[in-house]
């Protein structure tokens, strides 16, 4: 069995994100970069399936800058078998989905695990687009995944607005996870040593023969409307008073 997992390079969620001087994106100086936390969970799930079922190859792919090698090495250190970096300059979700179609046609995985969204652009689009482009079923926002005994299908529990939905999907399929699927492991020191020798293939997106023109163009980036801090109240009585007389919400 082969599982393809996607892992995006994103700024650390703890970093303070600001608009750059040109107003075209975020200021990248001094940012720490990590594996998208949702994708880290997808990698963990693939590793757990490998540990439970044996003879599973876990391939991690990313679409992004050359520096994303660093994040792929992190997933290899966690235990993935090999990695593929498709170099592309600021691709939008449409372009990423098209590139992943090409990769999947070549790699022929049994299914694909992805984080439901990347914490940088917060799009939450690629998995669903990819599923449609491939004509595969999708199970998005999952918190539990169970493969059938013959691995021809899977049952997924999805976190939806009203509660938890269970669906069954034939494989191959695109599966995107929410945060509560598992708790990802840290890479061990031996894992980090081993990761250095694991294969990491680099492909130039331009060599794939597909349309790389983005459909969603970012024209400018601006800071949010500022919300100013209010004031402290000394007691519950004062809180009630200001909510009644000043804010007029009680």
């Amino acid at each position: 069995m082969k599982i393809l997992v996607t892992a995006k390079r994103v700024p650390d969620s703890e970093s303070k994100i600001r608009v750059n001087a040109e107003g075209t994106g975020i200021a990248e100086t001094g940012l720490k970069w990590i594996v998208n936390p949702f994708d880290e969970i997808a990698v963990e799930e693939a590793l757990r399936i490998k540990e439970a079922h044996g003879s599973v190859e876990v391939v991690v792919a990313t679409v992004g800058p050359a520096e994303a090698q660093e994040q792929l090495r992190t997933t290899l250190a966690m235990g993935a078998d090999r990695a593929i970096l498709v170099r592309a300059v600021k691709p939008d979700t449409t372009v990423v989905a098209r590139i992943l179609v090409k990769l999947i046609e070549k790699e022929q995985p049994d299914f694909v695990l992805m984080g439901k969204q990347a914490t940088d652009d917060d799009c939450n689009e690629v998995g669903q687009m990819l599923a449609q482009l491939l004509g595969w079923p999708q199970a998005t926002f999952i918190s539990k995944l169970t493969l059938s005994a013959d691995k021809s299908s899977a049952t997924a529990i999805r976190e939806v607005d009203g509660g938890l939905e269970t669906i069954e999907i034939p494989l191959p399929a695109i599966i995107t996870n929410d945060l509560r699927l598992n708790e990802p492991r840290y890479a061990s020191l031996p894992g980090i040593m081993k990761a250095r020798k694991k294969p990491l293939e680099e492909i130039d997106a331009a060599s794939l023969g597909i349309d790389l023109a983005p459909r969603t163009l970012i024209k400018k980036v601006t800071p949010p409307a500022a919300r100013t801090a209010g004031r402290k109240v000394a007691s519950v009585d004062e809180l009630i008073k200001v909510l009644q007389t000043e804010a007029k919400v009680l």
């Binding site: 975020i26 914490t119 652009d121 687009m129 459909r215 024209k219 980036v221």
Partner: peptide, 29 residues
Amino acid sequence: AIASDVTEFNPDGTMVRPMNAGSVFATVE
């Protein structure tokens, strides 16, 4: 083409959406 979680439509056809947990807003075409 797609835009998710849009908060505003501009008269010129562009639209606004949050990114990075609302730390910044992108105007997209």
